[in-house]
């Protein structure tokens, strides 16, 4: 993709982010941080490419380490979000 297309996606996504995040209820701000943390680990994509492709051994090991770190975040982040969200209940009286 050329730089301008990428930039367009980025700018539009910032606007989407702005409106979506303002609509998040303050009661769920902690789960919001946990889940944003999990999804920002999509950076694992970069680690996977480095680990998968031949060409540089050092890059491969850096990539594998990045995959481990990002996986901790992905699994940990989604799991802890799920655990928190399961606690938000409305009790019927």
């Amino acid at each position: 993709m050329d730089f301008i297309s990428i930039l367009s996606i980025f700018v539009l996504a910032c606007f989407v982010g702005y409106y979506v995040v303002w609509s998040v209820t303050p009661a769920l701000h902690t789960p919001l941080m946990a889940v944003t943390n999990a999804i920002s680990s999509v950076i694992i994509v970069g680690g996977l490419i480095a680990a998968a492709e031949a060409g540089s051994d050092v890059a491969k090991w850096l990539g594998l380490l990045a995959v481990v770190l990002a996986s901790v975040n992905i699994f940990g982040g989604f799991a802890v979000t799920e655990r928190m969200l399961a606690m938000y209940k409305k009790k019927d009286k």
């Binding site: 980025f10 996504a13 910032c14 989407v16 982010g17 995040v21 919001l32 941080m33 994509v45």
Partner: peptide, 13 residues
């Protein structure tokens, strides 16, 4: 694009 969209979302959040 997945990384850019996510980065923008998390950054604005």
């Amino acid at each position: 694009s997945a990384m850019i969209i996510t980065g923008a979302l998390v950054g604005s959040s």
